[in-house]
């Protein structure tokens, strides 16, 4: 009988702390993805500023060079863009970014920053493009700081909350 009780409480504790761990992890995942995203945007900037490659080619190259965890969205954007000639860049960015918003643990504001870039992407000369890139990269840095703060505040809390609520549940049940 004891053995069964111990086994049951262990299961409860493990699953509760797992829930806490997974939820807490979303914060550090967001930070990580934001960093990767910033790298990708910087790659895109290099493609545009120095190689002057057209958008579809630039997006493809970003996909190849960037961290695959996030750069796949650039390939999807390219495919979405080229699949229908009546689409604009901003539309493709919007659709694909919103599609993967939860998968990448991005908030509404993060998506807003990326789509603000897409509204100007490719529509002016290089000098102006650089300005937009600078702006977006600063904004992404801001988002990253915000994400890090939230991570610091919440990650540990949710992880321990999971574990503790598991223990509390066990105590109550015993």
């Amino acid at each position: 009988m004891y053995l069964l009780k111990i086994l049951g409480s262990l299961i409860i504790i493990i699953s509760c702390s797992l829930i806490g761990y997974i939820y807490g992890n979303t914060f550090s995942k967001r930070v990580k993805n934001l960093i990767y995203l910033r790298n990708c945007i910087q790659l895109l900037e290099t493609e545009i500023m120095y190689s002057s490659s057209p958008i579809p080619e630039a997006l493809e190259n970003v996909f190849k060079k960037g961290n695959k965890e996030i750069s796949f969205i650039f390939k999807e954007i390219k495919e979405h863009l080229l699949s229908d000639r009546s689409r604009g860049i901003d539309e493709s960015f919007q659709v694909i970014c919103n599609k993967y918003k939860t998968h990448l643990n991005f908030t509404f504001e993060d998506i807003e920053v990326i789509t603000s870039l897409s509204k100007n992407l490719g529509k002016s000369d290089r000098l102006h493009q650089q300005k937009f890139f600078k702006l977006v990269i600063t904004q992404l840095e801001g988002q990253q700081i915000d994400a890090e703060e939230k991570k610091k505040k919440n990650e540990k809390m949710y992880k321990s909350l999971g574990l503790l609520s598991g223990i509390a549940l066990v105590i109550l049940l015993i």
Binding site: I48, L81, R85, L121, G122, D125, Q129
Partner: peptide
């Protein structure tokens, strides 16, 4: 504007 976008391959900077 749409035709221009497609003609320029969505990239005005590339045809500066």
């Amino acid at each position: 504007s749409k035709s221009f976008q497609i003609l320029s391959n969505y990239s005005v900077y590339a045809i500066e």
